[in-house]
Amino acid sequence: MVECETGHPLVTVIVITYNSAKFVRETLNSIRSQTYAALELVITDDCSSDATVDICRKWIADNNSRFSRTELITVGKNTGISANCNRGLDAAGGEWVKIIAGDDILEDACVAENIRFVLSDPDIQCVSCQITVFSDDLRKCDQVVLRDDLFELPQKKQLRYLLTKGNFIVGASVFFNAQLVREMGGCNERYPMLDDYPLILKIYQAGKRFYLLKKPLVRYRVHGCNVSLNPNSLFSVSLWKFYDEVIPGLLLEQGMFLHYWHAKVTAFKRRFPENGNVFRKLVRAGLSMLSPVSYVMALEQLFDET
């Protein structure tokens, strides 16, 4: 166990930045305000073209004494979110890691509550907390309540949900054991804008799971530059590439043959965009009829609406 002079486990907070000049001071100030003392700060920048690096460098100079260690990592070319996270993980000296984007905010007790939670049970190595979504106006906040029932499922059923329904674990909410993440190989840089989902699936494939901490400890900022909110962004390219290349094989490993067929049909459908001509729409409709899972999903949606 890596401990500070306080006797508490050292936590590395990794701030990933890219053109974050507008918001990064708020992010860093929220880390400085943590009630937990044993903190290391690593800021890793992905070749920002604005003043992000200068702001971070000055902030570190003014607040260095708050942390056991600080480091600012810069690169000469843009590499994507996954590689940026990995540089932070490689530099982390703490036993536990909290990754936060350079536009989000940690509540004051975020690290302390996570440490209290993981120390309550030695089986807990990965945590997901509740989050609050907010716009640039801090007064406009909405708490996102993660579904308790999903986290209460057995580990294998959680994995099956991740494979068939998508990622129910919000990346901004995650707090995890640094050694475990290194054993998983960190983020998959083949999918440069998709840092969390491939890593979470690796953790579940290894027989581990996430535990829900039922407290809102992170504020996730929604603004026009969020890559995950733009359907035509590089994030979507990484996401669908991951779905097409990885998910079908994992479904086969789990013996989920109908879902495997559905994944292959869905991948083929993406060759015919929804905004295409009538012929493309007819092809998409015909392909949907080839997958039994499509009928099940349609029925589920019908019951959800009634």
Rank of each mutant, 00 (worst) to 15 (best):
M1C: 05
V2H: 08
V2K: 13
H8P: 00
P9F: 07
I14D: 09
I14G: 11
I14R: 09
I14P: 11
I16N: 10
A21P: 03
F23Q: 09
T27Q: 04
T27S: 05
L28H: 04
L28F: 07
S30I: 07
S30N: 05
S30V: 07
R32A: 14
R32I: 12
R32S: 08
S33P: 00
T35Q: 13
A37N: 08
L41Y: 05
I43Q: 01
I43H: 00
S49T: 13
D50T: 11
D54C: 10
W59G: 02
W59E: 01
I60S: 09
S65T: 10
S65C: 08
S68A: 13
I73D: 10
I73G: 09
V75H: 03
K77F: 11
K77M: 06
G80I: 01
A83T: 07
N84H: 01
R87T: 04
L89I: 14
A91G: 10
W96G: 08
W96Y: 15
V97K: 05
V97P: 06
I100L: 11
I100C: 01
D104N: 15
E107G: 06
D108H: 12
A109I: 08
C110I: 04
V111M: 02
N114C: 15
R116T: 11
S120K: 11
S120P: 06
D121G: 13
P122G: 07
P122D: 13
D123E: 15
C126Q: 05
S128V: 03
S128Y: 00
S128P: 00
I131C: 08
T132L: 06
T132W: 01
T132Y: 02
T132F: 03
S135I: 00
D137Y: 12
R139Q: 14
K140N: 14
K140D: 14
R147Q: 15
F151K: 02
E152T: 11
P154A: 09
K157G: 02
L162N: 01
L163A: 01
T164M: 08
F168E: 12
F168K: 06
V170Y: 11
G171H: 06
N177V: 02
L180Q: 03
G185F: 08
G186V: 03
N188A: 14
E189C: 09
R190L: 04
Y191P: 04
L194Y: 03
Y197V: 02
Y197D: 01
F210M: 06
F210E: 01
F210P: 00
Y211N: 08
K214P: 05
L217W: 02
R219C: 11
R221Q: 06
H223M: 04
G224E: 15
S228I: 08
L229N: 12
N230H: 12
V237G: 00
Y243K: 15
Y243A: 07
V246N: 02
V246Q: 05
G249H: 12
G249F: 11
L252Y: 09
Q254R: 14
Q254L: 13
G255Y: 09
M256D: 00
H262K: 10
H262A: 13
F268E: 05
K269P: 02
K269D: 09
R271I: 02
F272R: 02
F272A: 05
R280S: 12
L282C: 14
A285R: 14
V293A: 01
L299S: 10
E300G: 07
Q301F: 07
Q301G: 14
D304L: 13
